[in-house]
């Protein structure tokens, strides 16, 4: 079993996107516990890749391919985790770009880096109304909600989001972080968010800081 865990970890580090599905199925057939496969195999592998990227040793495409390999593995293992038992412990982060804004490159990078740091990232895409974001956050029980805005004209949506979370009692349920080129520390403070970061590795640090004790 340990051998399979080792191989899964390595398959993520070597971004073996093509071979992952078969390896995962073989591991299940051999009786590997799916939860253990994710947490000790895949997640540890992606952590190594994430650290190397953070240290400037890897290029972004390598990180993205490793995350892709991880995703392929999770897709096989996750449905096989027994219901009702202990689920994945990785905290959930919900990501979206606010309404009227379709910029997504930065948000996607934040998602990739968070995945690579062991978080469960649920990305609902661009141009998302506050309503949808809050509904989804509740549905998946997100620990952190991260929103992106790249335009000064769409930035006010972030304030709107936090205000409407307050209005419906969701402000203390999730942590709200904001980002995108026009967002400053001051703005993040002014709208009473839980913080911002200027780039994807900063976003990882931020989220780590916010959920520190939960992980």
């Amino acid at each position: 079993m340990q051998d399979y865990i080792e191989r899964l970890r390595k398959a993520v580090i070597d971004y073996d996107m093509e071979g992952m599905t078969k390896l995962a199925e073989d591991a299940l057939a051999a009786g590997l516990d799916p939860l253990k496969a994710i947490e000790e195999g895949l997640a540890l592998g992606i952590r190594v890749v994430g650290d190397k990227f953070g240290a400037g040793e890897l290029f972004l495409p390598e990180l993205v391919m490793a995350a892709e390999a991880m995703r392929a593995g999770v897709a096989v293992f996750e449905p096989r985790i027994p219901k009702g038992g202990k689920g994945r412990v990785a905290p959930k982060v919900l990501l979206a770009t606010v309404q009227d804004d379709i910029h997504e490159i930065g948000k996607n990078l934040v998602g990739t880096m968070l995945t690579a740091s062991g978080f469960q990232v649920i990305d609902i895409g661009v141009n998302q109304p506050c309503e949808t974001i809050l509904k989804k956050a509740k549905e998946i029980d997100a620990v952190v909600v991260g929103v992106s805005a790249l335009m000064t004209t769409s930035m006010p949506r972030m304030k709107e989001l936090i205000e409407s979370a307050e209005g419906r009692g969701a402000r203390d349920v999730h942590q709200f972080i904001v980002g995108g080129a026009p967002v400053t520390e001051q703005y993040a403070k002014d709208i009473k968010s839980d913080g911002t970061a200027g780039d994807a590795s900063g976003a990882v640090k931020l989220v780590h800081g916010l959920v520190g004790d939960q992980k």
Partner: peptide, 8 residues
């Protein structure tokens, strides 16, 4: 280009 190390 997207700088593949700094992501800017």
């Amino acid at each position: 280009p997207l700088d593949m190390k700094t992501t800017t």
